[in-house]
């Protein structure tokens, strides 16, 4: 079970690496932001697997913080690039 979880964590880390390539490719800003959000989702999955495999319940709290704050960046992005458009022109 532990080996399986750790193996899956490594697999998800590979998907994170590939997601990073997607952030680099873009091409639009929204693409990049969305890819970054995908990385957060994968990280949460990795944390949950590690919490199980290493018997560290505190990692579940950590994943909660990840989820709660990932949205903040998205909201800041939507605001800066849509509604806030008038503000600096």
């Amino acid at each position: 079970m532990t080996d399986l979880s750790l193996g899956l964590a490594a697999l998800l880390m590979t998907s994170l690496l590939l997601g990073g390539v997607r952030v680099a490719c873009g091409p639009t800003r929204a693409d990049r932001m969305l890819a970054a959000q995908f990385l957060t989702t994968s990280s949460v999955a990795i944390l949950l697997l590690l919490a199980e495999a290493l018997d560290r319940p505190a990692l579940r709290n950590l994943s909660l913080a990840f989820v709660a704050l990932a949205t903040l960046t998205t909201i800041a992005f939507t605001q800066a690039y849509s509604e806030g458009k008038r503000a600096d022109e």
Binding site: L62, A65, L69, T73, A76, A80, Y81, D88
Partner: peptide
């Protein structure tokens, strides 16, 4: 260092991210 991971997730990735994304436009 899960305490630091928490601080980094909240402050480093979350708040700094929101700050920078809000500021980069200008």
């Amino acid at each position: 260092a899960i305490d630091v991971a928490l601080a980094e997730a909240c402050v480093g990735a979350g708040l700094t991210g929101a700050l920078l994304i809000g500021a980069v436009r200008q």
